[in-house]
Amino acid sequence: MSEIKTIVVNRSAYADNDLEADYLRKYLKEKGTYVVNLMSSPGAGKTTTLTKLINILKSTFRIGVMEADIDSDVDAISIAKNTGVKSIQLHTSGMCHLDAGMTKSGLDGINIEDLDLVFLENVGNLVCPAEFDTGACLDIMILSIPEGDDKPLKYPLVFEKCDLVIINKIDTISYFNFDFKKCEETIKMRNPNATIIPISAKTGENVDKVAQYFIEKVNNWKEK
């Protein structure tokens, strides 16, 4: 019988991913490419919002999009067709989220040398993507009116993590019991520094405000 010994580890399960994510952020800074991790539930309007937003921003920045899904490439095709920017589809092979390693592979695949701004459309899910640092420079999310104003209470982590919360489908608010003020208060309770912008990706309302937000963010980051 061989001897059994104990090795004390005391390390977070996320430690290797966090290290990889920090390394990736340094790499992005060197390359001058700003990566935005976009999270939401399925159907909140990630692809439609990105399409509208990119069509405003593409005269200012050279943009790329990485679409992460468990399977299929419908989003990548739709974005490429409707905006003309470079897009690739990442398959997570059944995983419900992206981690820093998968993000790095995606960025190698899209070739960031000639890109200023890359949107990473994470898997549609408010739970798992929030747990893993992707290595992106900014985390943002979309909540849509039909989902309800109680989502910041039910999925606190994603709201804590995101600097920008876009509230989409604001044109439908009169049809739903969505208390905008209450929703804003619960988001601020979780994350006092969050910026909240109500938009309608369908009608285009306020999408220019979101575009302005990104122009300021990218320029501040480049100057730092």
């Binding site: 580890v9 399960a13 996320y14 290797d16 419900c96 981690d99 798992c128």
Partner: peptide
């Protein structure tokens, strides 16, 4: 739901440690 993702990260870190030791 993301348990598998955490398991993969835990296992990778331990395998690396086992190899190193």
């Amino acid at each position: 739901m993301h348990e598998l993702g955490i398991v993969v990260h835990v296992i990778n870190q331990i395998e690396e440690l086992a190899k190193k030791n």
